[in-house]
């Protein structure tokens, strides 16, 4: 396809996406689901960089999500700052936190890396739940509606917030696409798959890891930032396993290093939870089992499964065709 045509098609699909909730009925529940899917997808894309590209499992990404949300809540309620300033604050704080965590975990890999990031999440949860400065166990309330006066935007409802959430999702998708084509993105994969070759090619694995951490944290924090406005209440529950499991499942469910993978993963999980719920216990069993099955048996996710099935079908088709040449000849 010609690049210009391809670009036009992408722009058309992206523009059409804006009207998707309206086309699906446009009720409050549809807009709420759409806004949350967009926000949680952005949250998952931050983790996707670490899991899919760097090949490590960070269990501390809920911390970046919470940093974004707490930054928005505190700057908006205590200093009266608008969304642009609070986004800036969220990004700066997330980068600082990621730099500290990145430096500390620079030499750690796989299991130890995951364990250390988990410990960080536990510490963060305890601090958030008990420190009065952060609202303690009562959390932070009274976050004003998302307002951008120059654009005449004041989002009281999820329908009004939808363009903002969708915009954030598109920016994140573009960022992920550009990242994977960039030198850093390619270096990440090389560090992941063949660290020795990476070193021989002049790539510094530690530097690459740190850079990816610094890029990934603000993405997840931006999701937390918008979530604070969407929910207008922020508390230590953001550090609970609910968000961690949601992120991890979404990243691995569809398949790794697929641009739309985390978005589709989040959408599937959220739609099941919101519209096809089987009750608390069964939902948790379903989500946990899906995670186990995908991690244990489907390393390529649903797309990998689909590919295997297609390949199997082809092979069968070929062998059937090969064993019955006469029939084909006759038919032809």
């Amino acid at each position: 396809m010609a690049p210009a045509l391809r670009l036009a098609l992408i722009v058309a699909i992206a523009a059409a996406g804006l009207f998707a909730p309206a086309l699906l009925g446009g009720t409050g529940a549809v807009y709420s689901a759409a806004v949350l899917i967009a926000i949680f997808a952005v949250m998952a894309y931050g983790l996707d960089m670490i899991v899919s590209d760097l090949g490590e499992v960070s269990l501390a990404h809920t911390v970046f999500f919470a940093i974004g949300a707490y930054a928005a809540a505190m700057l908006a309620t205590r200093l009266g700052l608008g969304p642009v300033a609070t986004l800036l604050g969220a990004i700066i704080l997330a980068v600082v936190a990621a730099a500290i965590l990145g430096v500390v975990t620079l030499r750690l890999k796989e299991f130890v890396f995951s364990l250390v990031t988990y410990a960080v999440a536990v510490v963060a949860m305890t601090v958030a739940a008990n420190w009065e400065f952060l609202g303690g166990s009562d959390g932070l309330r009274g976050i004003p509606p998302f307002t951008l006066a120059p654009l005449g935007l004041r989002a009281e409802t999820d329908a009004q917030l939808w363009p903002v959430a969708y915009g954030l999702l598109l920016v994140t998708l573009y960022l992920m696409h550009a990242f994977r084509r960039s030198r850093l993105g390619q270096a990440a994969v090389m560090v992941h798959l063949n660290p020795r070759l990476a070193t021989m090619s002049g790539i510094d694995p530690k530097r690459t890891r740190l850079q990816i951490f610094l890029l990934s944290a603000p993405v997840t924090a931006a999701a937390g930032w918008l979530y604070a406005y969407q929910r207008s209440f922020v508390s230590a529950d953001l550090l609970e396993t609910y968000f961690l499991i949601l992120m991890l499942t979404s990243v691995v469910l569809v398949g790794r290093r697929l641009l739309l993978g985390p978005l589709i993963g989040v959408a599937l999980v959220q739609i099941q939870e919101k519209f096809f719920s089987f009750g608390g216990y069964v939902d948790k069993i379903v989500l946990g089992s899906v995670l186990v099955v995908v991690l244990a048996f489907l390393p390529g996710g649903l797309v990998g499964l689909g590919r295997s099935l297609v390949a199997l079908g082809r092979r069968r088709g070929e062998s059937v065709a090969g064993s019955m040449p006469d029939v084909r000849t006759v038919k032809d």
Binding site: A20, L23, L24, G25, A29, V30, I264, I271, F275
Partner: peptide
Amino acid sequence: MVGACVALAMAGPAS
């Protein structure tokens, strides 16, 4: 597919 799921789900509550 996602869209179809949402549409299907919304038919219930809306009615």
